[in-house]
């Protein structure tokens, strides 16, 4: 094993340890761990990639790895997009409740009744100095 292989192996191993230590293994993390394992296997047996590549009809092992990388990246992109959407929805719901609760805690319901057409003070307006 030459030094390049050793460094890649160390890097993959540390990455795997890090991901395994994260709680709640989601599908994406399980996939990453599997891919890292596969990567480590390929470091030990580089000729395996070529064999696999020939089996599926690609010329070289490096091509196979590149294609796998592209597929994984695309999958990760879609996954992240979905996750981002989900988080944005949650943040929105939380912000909405904050806005409504704050308004109600201010002068709340009474504001509307006091408000239009009322004779509350010279300005006839509510919600002054709520904060």
């Amino acid at each position: 094993m030459h030094i390049g292989q050793f460094l890649i192996l160390c890097f993959l191993f540390l990455l795997m340890l890090y991901i395994l230590r994260l709680k709640n293994l989601t599908s994406i993390r399980i996939l990453i761990v599997l891919l890292l394992g596969l990567g480590m296997l390929f470091v030990f047996m580089p000729e395996l990639t070529t064999k696999l590549a020939n089996m599926v009809g690609f010329g070289r092992g490096a091509d196979l790895i590149l294609y796998l990388l592209v597929i994984f990246n695309l999958y990760y992109f879609v996954y992240t997009l979905g996750e981002q959407n989900r988080l944005l929805k949650m943040v929105t719901l939380a912000a909405r409740e904050i806005a409504i609760l704050k308004a109600q805690a201010g002068e709340g319901e009474s504001l509307a009744e006091k408000g239009q057409g009322g004779d509350d003070g010279p300005e006839g307006r509510w919600y002054h100095g709520a904060a």
Binding site: A95, R96, A99, K102, A103, L111, A112, G115, Y127
Partner: peptide, 23 residues
Amino acid sequence: ALGYPVYVLKHPFNLGQGAALQT
């Protein structure tokens, strides 16, 4: 807006017009 007899709801940060409408 607080100077008028209206309800004022404040999003803590900008979310977009759709979110404001739903709020």
